Every structure is written in structure tokens, then in C-alpha cells.
Amino acid sequence: MNTIKDIRIYRSQAENIAGNSLPHEFANKELSIMLHRIAMKLREHDFTLGDFNHLYVNLTTCMVDDKIAPSKRGKDRYFPRFRYYDVEISQPFFDTLETSDCIQSVIEIVEQVLIKYFCTAKHDSEFIRSCVSEAVEQGENMLVKFKEKRASKKQA
């Protein structure tokens, strides 16, 4: 099991399958920072995604089973620690993704993906919600435990 390292948001209007180009990352710096804080808060508590550690959420206008599903692209043999999860969104919402108006909605979508696919007995839906809300509410004032490497040993 690998502890979460990264959450990123992508967008596409083409189906996310092998053979098609990769979804596009979009430049919403405020959203990227917020997602990084969420990943840091989850990592602090050893939250795991299973056999991978980079969660890539692809917001797409294409049809997706149950509106949220693992991508049909499959595992990339060159980057086995990355996984895409597709989320179906409307065209008007897709058009607002470069604005700051979408940030809260996208964070809620990421929270839904985490709860739907990665809840465990130790890290249940309430835990995920609390980590997300703490990261959002405290913003740049959020405190997080981290390990630093001193010599050959990591110390908390």
C-alpha cells in the first residue's frame, strides 16, 4: 500500500481511453494549491489509494458510468503509480473550469471520488470529509506533520 502523494485535476472532451490523447491539466493555481493541501493532510494520516499514489481526476463531458468511474485508459506501464478517475460534468460547468468560481465544486467532486473508491475502516467517509474541510478552511494556515530526512533515518 502506497501513501497518497498527489491529487491533480484534468479535463477532456474526448473519451479517456488508450489510443486517445491524455486529458489536459488546466491552469487554476488556486485549485492546484488546495488539492495539494488536501493530499498533504491525507498523507499525514497515512491515507492510501491502494497500489498507486497519484490520483488524477479527469472532468469530462463524455458519458461515464454512474457519473464517476475509474478510467478505461487502464494502468500506464511507464507510470504505474498514476490512475485516472473520470467524472462526467455538464458543458456549462466544463466551460467555467479556468475560473475561480469552480473551485468549491471541483473540491466536492474530488471528495466524492475519495469517498466512493478509497474509504476503509480506518479512513472512513467522515475522516475524508474532515481532512478536506480542514485543508479548505485553514488554507495557508493549515498545520501538517511531515517527516524530514536527517542522515539515513527519517524523523517525525
Rank of each mutant, 00 (worst) to 15 (best):
T48H: 10
T48E: 10
H54R: 15
H54C: 12
H54V: 15
H54Q: 13
L55E: 03
L55N: 05
Y56V: 01
V57E: 01
V57I: 15
V57K: 05
V57F: 07
N58P: 00
L59Q: 03
L59E: 01
T61N: 02
C62G: 01
M63L: 14
K67Q: 08
K67I: 12
I68H: 06
P70T: 03
P70F: 15
S71T: 09
K72I: 06
R73I: 05
R73V: 05
K75R: 15
D76P: 00
D76L: 15
R77H: 11
Y78N: 12
P80M: 11
P80H: 11
F82D: 13
F82C: 09
R83F: 04
Y84N: 05
Y84D: 04
Y84V: 08
D86S: 11
E88C: 11
I89F: 13
S90L: 08
Q91P: 00
P92S: 12
P92F: 11
P92W: 10
P92D: 04
F93Q: 01
F93K: 05
F93L: 12
D95W: 06
D95I: 01
T96V: 09
E98N: 15
T99C: 10
S100M: 09
S100K: 15
D101E: 15
C102E: 02
I103K: 14
Q104N: 14
Q104R: 13
V106C: 07
E108G: 12
I109Y: 06
V110I: 12
E111I: 04
V113M: 06
L114H: 03
I115Y: 07
K116I: 09
F118L: 05
F118N: 02
K122M: 06
D124Q: 05
S125A: 15
S125I: 02
E126Y: 06
E126V: 10
E126D: 10
I128G: 01
R129K: 14
R129L: 03
R129N: 06
V132L: 06
V136D: 02
E137A: 11
E140V: 09
E140G: 02
